[in-house]
Design a protein around this nucleic acid. Sequence first.
DNA 1: ATTACAAACATTTTT
DNA 2: TGTTTGTAAT
Length: 776
Amino acid sequence: MTDPFDLTDDDLDAAPGDPETPPPEPPWLAGLNPEQRRAVETLDGPVLVLSGAGTGKTRVLTTRIAHILHLRRAQPWRVLAVTFTNRAAREMRERLAAMIGPVAESVWLGTFHALSLRMLRRHAEKVGLRDGFSILDADDQLRLLKQLMVDANMDPKRDPPKALMGRIQRWKDRGLTPDRVPDADAREGAARRARELYTRYQTRLLELNACDFGDLLLHTLAILQAHPDIAAEYQRKFDYILVDEYQDTNVAQYLWLRLLAAGHRNLCCVGDDDQSIYSWRGAEVGNILRFDTDYPGAAVVRLERNYRSTPTILGAAAGLIRHNTDRLGKDLIAAGAAADDPDVRKVTVRGLWDGEAEARWVVEEIEALGHEMRGSGNGTGNAAAGTAILVRATFQMREFEDRLMTCGVPYHVIGGPRFYERLEIRDALAYLRLVAQPDDDLAFERIVNTPKRGLGETSLQTLQIMARAAGIPLLAAARDLAASDELKPRARTALGAFVADVDRWRALVGGMPPSEVCATILEESGYAAMWKADKSPEAPGRVENLEELVGAVAEFETLDAFLEHIALVMETESKGAAAGVTLMTLHAAKGLEFDVVFLPGWEEDLFPHKRALDEGGQASLEEERRLAYVGLTRARTRAFVSFAANRRIFNNWQASMPSRFVDELPDAFVDKTSDTGLYGAVTAGFAEEFGGWGTRHPRRTLAAGSGGSAGRVAPGTGTWKVRDRSGDGQGIRVGQRVFHQKFGYGTVQSAEGGKLAVNFEKAGRKTVVAGFVEPA
DNA sequence: ATTACAAACATTTTT
DNA sequence: TGTTTGTAAT
């Protein structure tokens, strides 16, 4: 297979094809609506396509590329199309190939990271990396950082490595090398220490001839900035640049694009500010918000015709997202069913007693819909699945899994630990890496004593000191050490044998297919045997995974090719469509669509998540709201929102209030009182039995018009029935004995913001909403 | 060097 | 509640 990214044999300065005879209008333009057509046909200069959910974003991107090529405005290899995920890149390439055939292979199409890596491989020496540098994954990064912390005598209690790593990554997201981190960002103690550590970290990476994900962009950026000749070369190479999911770009990516587009400014960015949900990973919504300031004269195209969802779903979503202030402002128009279509159902909103009841209800609804549940992929990559349950946090998944399993409803979970992140796979990969790259110290450390070879702390310490003193890789040091008599005989023999093994395996590379090399290593190292002998319940699965790994290696010609691939693509290609209900986080659902979507857990403190609010305030609230918006707009025909009054989190019960987002859904599009009357009955039951929702969020007041008359269902408005407990459990004092329906009798320990901490006699200490208890 | 137990902690995670 | 992480004991 030819490498579509290989620059080396391209003619960087090839002239664009001559536009002699414009071919007849191709069929693909005909199917576009006027806005899409404008987005496709506005070829020159900067273009921003604001593409709302379900408005045909990918279609516009692929058609635009096809159009450019069709008009001979550029050769395929002079078009650069950037995505965030491998999935998006794959989908785009497939759809492009369907339009224009195999020539689609030549387009420079890939993720920011994959494309950066191609450039970086060519110019690695400019940033101090040598040929064949390796790419660390999250696990390696953290282990490296921890080592550096130990060296620097830092206390992991005071500075959690993960937090420090996070800071470093955020700096990298902003395109900041250690020397460029502003003092203002490193004033406070932890930040100052993080910056120092950042410097050491980068130094150590170069020593290891390695870089992390962030570096792929950062180094490339540094090269383009420091070497105008190289920058100019790429600026001339690409005639047209297209970017997907522009709202998710971070500063480094923004600068990367700006540099590459600096010449002709033929930059087309597609995105939706309302779907920006990754700011916590460094994404800057600001990039899309100020596109036309950055690129004066930019054409802005709004795609607002939604081909996915019903008018009610869109209406509900629009009502919600209207509460955000920092928006470019788009309104989705349903292109499908009319608003008065009797088949169009409102969004169902349902309150339930607890998480378990919620799960039960959701699965009942799924069964009642009797929906023909198809898998999550339909071949074209445009995911069209049956039903999905979208949760805010992964811990919510369990309850649904339990219930689905009990009811025998087929389901699958998306997300969770990925194949290449599993322990046994990472270990196996470390073997392969060490064989392919003798100076990969991190790989060496990982597996010297896995399986156990009797090489402990002390032996390895000796080895580390020796390697560092001599400035050589650990494997080389191990070879020397095994030949000396510094170690105890037992350790020396073990180390010698290990080095000999690695040498022997390396000799195999090239002589036999990489999958056989892999299998041999796993056998001879005793690693496979280690898991086969393991009696723990997960061991058989691990053995299977190892076999699967050997199968995955078989897809590649060389070991290096395989290792390079997995460094960038941390997932195995999904094999066929998984059946049944899809269970995943809201974040994972972006870009997908389903006939029916369930959105459970719409409760204050869970969604919007308390921690997000604590950390990021108003901006985070808006991001949470966008997440809710993304969730709703995944649905084609039906959406179900639910919340529970009580939720067990980490073994203790938390009383919870409906999310403010529930109130923000416009009544006109929402069924808070279902037509069977069930919903109303349950609410009434709640009110009756448990004192109603009692207190709303302390910082919120009831919807206008019902504030003074809580306790009454305003006719036709669907307002929640609320019983006024004369304000936030007034009259309940600390030390008072109270009664709670679920927990029984207890004593109030503290009261704050309408919530009480109560020490229950049977149930222990819980936090409950004041409205749920009564004086005993 | 390895095992065992307790203590801490638990949003989201495209590459 | 389940997992992961660190320490203590063998």
